[in-house]
């Protein structure tokens, strides 16, 4: 009995740092942020402890609502494109030989070793007027003049897709890697053509990978303000950009906090939905 008791307390000692870390760096800031969102803006900097709902009411103004709308649309579009590219990529990568797999993996991982800011700035060189892409297209003869690709909506979408694709690829890959390919043979033996076998067998069994890929893409794409900043200039304003502006130039911390809380609620809903869908999946593992 005493032994069991000691073991339990030992467990506590091991787990305590984790709890402490989570409370200090996740829990408290979160509470602080929610608290802040109900306070009033100070005249010059910071905030005053006067309770108000003004920050949340302000979000209802058309300009902010439409920014949420733009962000949501961009996130959906990004997630859709990332899925269309990332799913087949991850799926077929899992079917490669061991050596080819390793090469692909290295190819996906290497960019992660460079700061994403540096990589995005690299794309400026490609996309800007008379940049690498313009010159190439004009040299081939597809266009006669620079396309002005930089600081446009498509450029932002491209940047988002570029930044988030690896998450989908790796997520689908890890799921497809576990798939027993003999199941596809069995389906084909029972009369299913290639497409049918894929949709009946491979697709449902890689669904967990696809779903977690979607979560890993959708949630960050709501908040990746620096992509819009670097490749969209001032033309594409996302909710992440507004939060950043309000915190820095706007000096309105309570309003920035309120925006963050709403953004967080939206993404939480997304996660809840994910849990619900995946919870309904039977017979996996």
């Amino acid at each position: 009995m005493a032994g069991a008791g000691r073991r339990k307390s030992n467990n506590w000692a091991l787990v305590a740092p984790l709890y402490l870390f989570t409370i200090l760096f996740v829990g408290l800031p979160l509470i602080y942020m929610v608290y802040l969102s109900f306070m009033s803006r100070a005249k010059v900097w910071g905030f005053t402890n006067d309770f108000t709902l003004q920050n949340y009411l302000q979000i209802l103004e058309p300009i902010y609502m439409s920014t949420f709308g733009t962000s949501l649309k961009l996130a959906v579009l990004t997630t859709a494109i990332v899925t269309l590219i990332g799913y087949p990529f991850g799926y077929f990568m899992a079917r490669l030989g061991a050596k080819a797999k390793r090469l692909m993996m290295i190819g996906i991982m290497i960019p992660f070793w460079t700061s994403s800011l540096v990589r995005l700035n690299g794309w400026i060189i490609v996309f800007r007027s008379n940049g690498v892409l313009d010159k190439l297209l004009m040299w081939i003869g597809l266009t006669d003049e620079p396309l002005k690709l930089l600081y446009s909506y498509p450029a932002v979408v491209f940047g988002m897709v570029y930044a988030l694709c690896p998450f989908m690829m790796l997520s689908v890959y890890s799921s497809a890697e576990k798939l027993d390919w003999r199941l596809l043979e069995a389906a084909s033996d029972l009369g299913a053509g290639r497409a049918r076998a894929f949709f009946d067998i491979a697709f449902p069994l890689t669904m967990p990978g696809l779903m977690s890929g979607i979560v890993l893409t959708f949630i960050p794409s709501m908040g990746l303000f620096f992509v819009a900043d670097i490749l969209g200039g001032s033309k594409v304003v996302l909710i992440g950009n507004v939060i950043q502006e309000q915190m820095t130039k706007g000096r309105n911390l309570p309003f920035a906090a309120a925006l963050s809380v709403v953004l967080m609620l939206m993404t939480s809903c997304m996660l809840g939905l994910y849990r619900k869908i995946c919870g309904n999946w039977k017979g996996l593992d």
């Binding site: 027993d180 199941l183 069995a186 389906a187 067998i201 069994l205 999946w281 017979g283």
Partner: peptide
């Protein structure tokens, strides 16, 4: 065919 590991569809 009956496969060595049965290859039943788990889902």
């Amino acid at each position: 065919m009956i496969f060595q590991n049965y290859a039943l569809f788990p889902h």
